[in-house]
Amino acid sequence: MELQIQNLSKVYQNGVRALDNVSLTIPVGMYGLLGPNGAGKSTLMRTIATLQEPDSGEIHLGTLNVLRQKQELRKTLGYLPQEFGVYPRTSAQEMLGHLALLKGITDSKQRKDTVEALLHRTNLHEHRKKALSGFSGGMRQRFGIAQALLGDPRLLIVDEPTAGLDPGERNRFYSLLSEIGEDVIVILSTHIVEDVMELCTNMAVIHQGKVLFAGAPSEAVKSLEGRIWQKSVAKSEVKEHEQRYRVISSKLIAGKPLIHIYSAENPGNGFTPVSADLEDVFFSRISGIE
C-alpha cells in the first residue's frame, strides 16, 4: 500500500499559495515532512485527512480515491492535528472511550481494554478520571496521541506530535511510533530536524508550498557531502559574511555565531570542512541552494 499524492495545489482566499503542485509517493513506514512554520505541512496533512479540499490534484491510498471516498479513508485513519482543544466537562477515560466508539470499536469489552492500554502507553492512566480541561499542555498532547492510535490505523498522520512534550515523553512516543510504523504509513510533520533524523526512512522538505526534496535522509545528506563549511565569527562579522558567502545557517555556540556556508570548493578564510547533516540539508534547501 502506498499513498500517492499527485499535483496537489491549494490557494487560500487571502492569496497564500499553501500547496504548489505537490507530488509525493509515501510508502509504508515513517515519513517525515520537514519545513519551517507556514510551509504548507499542515495544509497537506489536513488535505490527506479529508479535512480540506485542494483546488486541483489527486490523492490515492492504494486503490482508494481519498478526495472522493472520504468516509472509506477515515476508517483507516489516525489523525493528530497540530492544535486541538479538549471537550469540556469530560474525563480522559470517558472521552477516549467515546472516540473509540466513534472509530468503530463497538464491542464494549474491547473498547475498554484498548482505552486502558492506550492510557498506559501514553502515561495518562493515573489521570484517567481527571477532566480534560484540567490537563497540562503535555498531557493534552499525549491524549491527542492516544486518540490518534485508537483502532489500529493503517494511515497515521501526526502533525507536530512532540510539541510540548518533555524529552522523556518524546522518546517514549517515538518508540511507540516506530513500533507501530513497521506496517503502517506514518506521516510526521515537524520543524525539528532531529525528529526526522532519528525516525524516518523517507522524508520531504517543504517550503512555501513546494516540495524541495523528497527521498531518504541519507541520500539528502550525501548530496551535500564536502560542500558545507563552518566558521566561528564575531557578531559584527555576520553581515559581511552573508554578503560574501552563501550562508545557509547561523547559530550561537557559547554565545558566538557559528555559520555554515555552502561552497563547492574550499572557501579558505578560516572555514573548516564539516560533514553535512540533515539540518544543513534543510537550511540549504529552503535558502534556495539546489
Binding site: 485527512a49 479529508t50 479535512l51 492535528p81 486541538f84 482543544g85 479538549v86 472516540l99 472509530k103 468503530g104
Partner: peptide, 16 residues
C-alpha cells in the same frame, strides 16, 4: 472547544 479536527477525521458519519 477546538476539537473539530479530531472529531471530523473520525470514521463516524454525520448523522449520529
Amino acid at each position: 472547544s477546538g476539537t473539530d479536527e479530531v472529531h471530523d477525521a473520525l470514521p463516524s458519519p454525520e448523522w449520529p
